[in-house]
Nucleic acid binder design. Structure first.
Lengths: 248, 248
DNA sequence: CGTTCGCTTGAGAACTCTCAATAGGGGTGG
DNA sequence: CCACCCCTATTGAGAGTTCTCAAGCGAACG
């Protein structure tokens, strides 16, 4: 576990894999030096809960590597995923001391953390941080609204296709590959996590994945290794414009 | 229509009804003076479209009075409301020149607008504006995520109860009334708009409203005038904790 | 007075869920 | 090395919820 933490120098932001996309993206060298003084790393294992909703949050931070989920749960146990945290995504909310959602690591994960109070103080003095955080929050708001359309108006098949399209797109972006034609990736989520994201049951998720496979929209090796022979086709199945997609 | 515009002095922010809650809430007197120079008012009639998704957006602004909806539409016509804009809510996104959603006034509405470029320039120089916008955006993100739970996991009856609870709560806050016990308000939305918000059909909305009425959870005079005899009961029907509710 | 619009209600169809049985893979222990 | 178990996933059958299509009502408006 600690190996992950040591893959990059724990005190030098220069080599950080999320340096150009995280909340610190716009910071100058001198600002980074201040951040380096208050930051620390934490590692989580796959399946481990990072924060429980309602818990005291004495830190905020960025996902450096790995993936985690943001979920809400009703009293009777129904749960809805409200966000997927990928490398560079921000965890926590300045000015709020209690977590609003459960955060659970779905893969091994490393976070770059800041104690909340010093971070808030620094934000007040460093417009670059607040600017970037505003931009990131606006992007998340767009993503959440995009997801509201998926949850409210799409069929089970379209929901699955939408989720696969999002994951495929993100994966291609990460690999700097084209997001057209043939794409190959590993699903980071279990069927149950997908169901929680899509507002479905895991059985419906399984059935629709089988259906998409039967219809040649996707190919599967094992349960998790997915091939998209034709991204345009997948986007049609998702009910999106095959040209653009997620954001106009 | 223009009467609305004249209800408050179009050049003086002091008497503005959203002065303390809008994007300008934190501004000092001197900052307000600058804003006053670049602002202008626009009025819209009920039913009028403020912006079409994909259109050029040369302004941003705040809702001063009235209500409008933020919706997304799929190619085949399915539509999902992704936000409800109430007085003090912000419209538009700094740094983006095309609208991502349709904005439609559901009541007569007045907006306080700023041309986008001057506003962006001012934001860069005025941390108070960016700070407040960040706070508002984080609140909207929470609301969007709360709504994801409603869309993804609640039954039709719970969805209706949730919407009524939100509207009742907002209305009570506006009137500075207690949000416990008996509440009375007018529904600002048609059944169809409610359906678009909830990811249901208008028939299902109508049926569930009738059911809640039959069960004594709500009382109706006409189609729009609603009485909530017991807010706690309504929150139970919404599947929320009857004590807290929306945000922890 | 007729038309339109928003709303209600009914009946049957379609979709997704629930409950249940089965299968496959990975790890553990005999 | 194999048997066993646990966890994840698949598949089936029937039930339940919501949708679709359709008819009808009442108020507002021309």
């Amino acid at each position: 576990m600690l190996n992950d933490t040591l893959k990059f120098d724990a005190h030098n932001c220069d080599g950080c894999p999320i340096r150009h996309r995280a909340v610190c993206a716009r910071c100058e060298t001198d600002e980074l030096e201040v951040l380096e003084q208050i930051k620390y790393y934490r590692s989580y294992e796959a399946g481990q809960t990072v924060i429980w909703s309602g818990d005291q949050m004495d830190f905020v931070g960025s996902v450096v590597s790995g993936i985690s989920t943001l979920t809400q749960t009703m009293e009777d146990g129904r749960t809805q995923m409200v966000g997927l945290l990928l490398p560079s995504d921000f965890v926590g909310r300045p000015g709020r001391d209690r977590a609003a959602y459960d955060v659970v690591a779905v893969t091994d994960m490393v976070m770059c953390c800041f104690r909340r109070k010093p971070f808030e103080a620094m934000m007040a003095k460093t417009p670059h941080i607040a600017e970037r955080l505003l931009e990131m929050t606006l992007d998340e708001l767009d993503a959440a609204r995009e997801w509201m359309l998926v949850l409210g108006r799409k069929t089970a098949r379209e929901k699955i296709a939408s989720l696969l399209a999002i994951i495929a797109r993100r994966d291609a972006t990460l690999k700097m590959a084209s997001i057209q034609g043939r794409l190959v990736f590993d699903l980071p989520l279990t069927r149950e996590a997908m169901a929680d994201y899509l507002g479905l049951t895991l059985e419906t998720v399984s059935r629709q994945i089988s259906a998409l496979k039967r219809d040649g929209v996707i190919e599967l090796e094992g349960k998790r290794h997915v091939t998209i022979p034709d991204m345009g086709r997948l986007l049609e199945e998702a009910g999106d414009d095959s040209d653009g997609g997620m954001l106009a």
